[in-house]
């Protein structure tokens, strides 16, 4: 982001513990406050679902393999959701992130399979594609002044069309194992994409919560006119958040391709709703109505426990959509309910 480290003073980094110096509440109260169902309802939801499915499917559900696989799958969804999160923090919806993931997956595959591009170079190229997609979104939203939801719905469709045109709707397997190992090799039981998702979440969390640009991003999401008067270059910030979203879409695309070992035409679609559901459900976690990185991660996992359980029980496929749809509405209702509806897209300059 743009205005980050303009002042490198000599003061060492201070340990920061949420920072209140007010009359310290008792430790027990503090702990209760931190883990109360109001603050981390998704963790409780996950626990309830977990207990239920453990009861229904004791063998299958407690199998470690189930969990490592689930985490590998969900790591991609986490990265997409974090891509959704960053612009939403600035009050801008980006529906196109998941489609960018689909496109970059196809481009990645074609570069490696048809052009024998080294996968490292291919990865850099598709990350540039992701950033460009973000810039295009910024242009449509800030210059053409189209409502962000509509704008990215449109660009998302365009991106999906390009994806389909390039792949002709075919899935091409990648035989380059040095690349596919990236998606499937394990370290301490978990695949690399899981660590990648954790790293992305940590970086996103740090940038949004602990840097000046992050604070300014939230300020824009809270009130663009107030942010503008505070001297924040609102349009530039929005452009940067959209570019971050595009880049994260590309990162997700790279990891997805590596994990599956092929491109999957039309894969983006199924990541759109979970991404948004997680961001808004996540907004009700930890931070009292402000969307945040760890809330988003926890929400993805809670939703995944649910869908995985239903899968294993053997219900029909449509239960996924039903589950995410209901979760999105419940999440939105909960954030409105806690009277902090910072989720409306606000008027952009």
């Amino acid at each position: 982001m743009t205005q980050s480290v303009e002042d490198r003073s000599r003061v060492p980094i201070l340990p920061d513990v949420g920072g209140t110096q007010a009359a310290a509440p008792s430790t027990a109260r503090k702990i209760w406050k931190a883990i109360s169902p109001r603050r981390v309802s998704a963790i409780y939801l996950a626990a309830i679902l977990f207990a239920y499915f453990t009861y229904r499917l004791p063998d299958l559900f407690l199998e470690p393999r189930t969990w490592t696989t689930l985490l590998s799958q969900q790591s991609i969804a986490v990265i997409v959701a974090l891509g959704v999160l960053i612009p939403v923090a600035a009050g801008v919806f980006d529906v196109s992130v998941a489609y960018t993931m689909g496109l970059t997956s196809t481009v990645m595959t074609l570069l490696i399979v048809e052009h024998n591009t080294p996968w490292g170079l291919a990865a850099v190229l598709v990350i540039v594609i992701g950033a460009v997609a973000g810039l295009v979104n910024a242009f449509v939203i800030s210059i053409l002044k189209v409502n962000s939801l509509i704008a990215t719905l449109g660009t998302g469709m365009v991106i999906a069309a390009i994806d389909l045109a390039l792949s002709s709707g075919e899935s091409r397997p990648i035989l380059n194992t040095s690349f596919t190992d990236l998606g499937t090799n394990r370290f301490l039981q978990l695949t690399w994409p899981v660590y990648a998702a954790l790293a992305v979440a940590a970086i996103t969390w740090y940038l949004l919560e602990h840097t000046a640009p992050g604070r300014r991003t939230y300020a824009i999401g809270g009130s663009a006119p107030a942010a503008r008067l505070a001297g924040i270059p609102v349009r530039r910030y929005i452009a940067v958040t959209l570019m971050c979203a595009g880049v994260l879409g590309a990162v997700a695309g790279i990891l997805l391709t590596a994990r599956i070992g092929a491109n999957t035409p039309g894969v983006g679609q199924s990541y759109v709703l979970p991404g948004f559901a997680a961001v808004f459900l996540g907004a009700t976690q930890f931070k009292d109505g402000r969307m945040n990185a760890w809330g988003t991660v926890v929400a993805i996992l809670a939703l995944a426990v649910g869908t995985k359980g239903f899968d294993l029980i053997g219900v029909k496929l449509w239960i996924h959509d039903l589950f995410y749809g209901v979760a999105l509405i419940v999440a939105m209702a909960m954030s409105v309910w806690s009277k902090r509806s910072s989720i409306e897209p606000n008027g952009l300059p």
Binding site: S9, P12, L14, A219, S223, L229
Partner: peptide, 28 residues
């Protein structure tokens, strides 16, 4: 909407126009 960011705290609003003085090495 011009004066304040409603969902932000008093301290977050007060520091918003000048974050430099509460930032060191990029950390707020």
């Amino acid at each position: 909407p011009e004066g304040l960011v409603q969902q932000m705290s008093v301290s977050e609003n007060i520091t918003l126009p000048l974050l430099r003085t509460v930032t060191s090495r990029g950390r707020l």
